[in-house]
């Protein structure tokens, strides 16, 4: 049965519409089209339509669905944040370890290498005017003697490597 008493039939709702329409188009005859329509007569129709506005309602599950989607999205975002946070932390730690290791290797004292001995022998051969082989023999001999001295007296700290070219010729021998 059709409703003879619409819910919101209060006041003249067409008045604001008429005012606004006149503001937009001026005289009604200058409207968008010459539709033969009585604006005042349409207030009943607008009231009818207004009354039907609350007839449709959202489903019972809509609210729960939205909240669940929001929570799911938040969980996923936290998971990605944890993943990227852990990845960034691990990368930082690895990089820090590599840098510290490199610095440690650069500044830590180390013994003589074969290259050091060969370079020292070359310098000694040039300085003393002897053969390179003989200079190398002397250098190795000096190195073994200093090593033996350190072993005999462990309280003497091991010195970092200093090229013999900075020492006097007598000290080197």
């Amino acid at each position: 049965m059709f409703d003879p008493y619409p819910t919101h039939r209060t006041g003249d709702h067409s008045k604001p519409f008429n005012d606004e329409f006149e503001n937009l188009f001026g005289d009604e005859s200058l409207g968008p089209d010459s539709i033969n329509m009585s604006l005042h007569g349409d207030s009943d129709l607008e009231d009818l339509i207004r009354g039907a506005g609350n007839y449709v309602r959202p489903g019972d599950q809509l609210r729960a669905r939205i909240l669940e989607s929001v929570a799911h999205r938040r969980e996923r975002r936290y998971m990605w944040q944890r993943f990227f946070g852990g990845f960034a932390l691990a990368t930082t730690v690895v990089l820090a370890l590599v840098i510290i290791g490199q610095i440690g290797l650069a500044i830590a004292p180390r013994g003589r290498t074969a290259s050091d001995l060969q370079r020292q022998a070359a310098r000694r051969a040039n300085a003393d005017g002897v053969a390179w082989e003989w200079a190398l023999t002397e250098v190795v001999y000096d190195w073994r003697r200093s090593t033996t001295g350190r072993l005999d007296n462990p309280s003497v700290p091991s010195k970092p490597f200093t090229p013999l070219s900075t020492q006097t010729q007598g000290d080197a021998r």
Binding site: P6, A52, Y55, R57
Partner: peptide, 21 residues
């Protein structure tokens, strides 16, 4: 497809609402 609600005192208006929709 519409989920509708109509109070008991508005049942007689339901048909008009459906017409409008």
């Amino acid at each position: 497809d519409l989920l509708t609600r109509c109070r008991v005192d508005e049942l007689e208006r339901e048909e008009s609402y459906r017409e409008i929709w």
